[in-house]
């Protein structure tokens, strides 16, 4: 009898999100930061060509764009568990809004995936073809950061 009462209490407590012990999602946060860094490194290869900082190289551009497409295919759910916002833990800029409008958040990731595919289609065609497609990718990045990332302090 005592046991079942304890089980019941535990069940009730687990239903109350405020009372449940906070999970440690620091590994998930590190993984999604790594994902962002991977995108920045590959975008950098293309962006420095668009800026004229490095000479255009069709093979390197195509490889970088292909990486961006590959990264876009990673399923995002595991990286963004509920309870891993900047209101829940330190060292993340992910706003709680992500989980209030999760479908829109994922739609913005998909929009970025489409921009990456369009970029891959033209990355081998010279810097003049690449630059506007990279601009579209930038639009997709900022659209999501505007809504869902805390601005720098």
């Amino acid at each position: 009898m005592r046991l079942s009462q304890a089980t019941l209490s535990a069940a009730v407590i687990s239903l109350l999100p405020g009372l449940a012990p906070a999970q440690d999602y620091s590994f998930n946060v590190a993984a999604r930061k790594g994902e962002m860094d991977l995108m920045a490194i590959n975008t950098g290869v293309l962006g420095n060509m668009a800026k004229g900082k490095t000479p255009y190289d069709a093979d390197a551009a195509t490889a970088a764009a292909a990486n961006l497409v590959t990264i876009s295919k990673i399923t995002q759910g595991l990286l963004w568990p509920e309870g891993s916002s900047n209101a829940d833990m330190q060292d993340t800029k992910a706003l709680p809004k992500i989980w209030e409008s999760y479908d829109d958040f994922l739609a913005k990731w998909d929009a970025k995936a489409k921009a990456a595919e369009a970029l891959l289609a033209v990355a081998g065609d010279g810097v003049d073809a690449l630059a506007p497609a990279l601009g579209k990718l930038g639009e997709a990045c900022t659209a999501c950061h505007k809504e869902y990332r805390q601005p720098d302090k």
Binding site: M39, A40, G138, C141, T142, H145, K146
Partner: peptide, 11 residues
């Protein structure tokens, strides 16, 4: 929107 380190603008 790309910064020199290719992070991108927000806010």
């Amino acid at each position: 929107g790309f910064k020199p380190d290719f992070d991108s603008a927000g806010g």
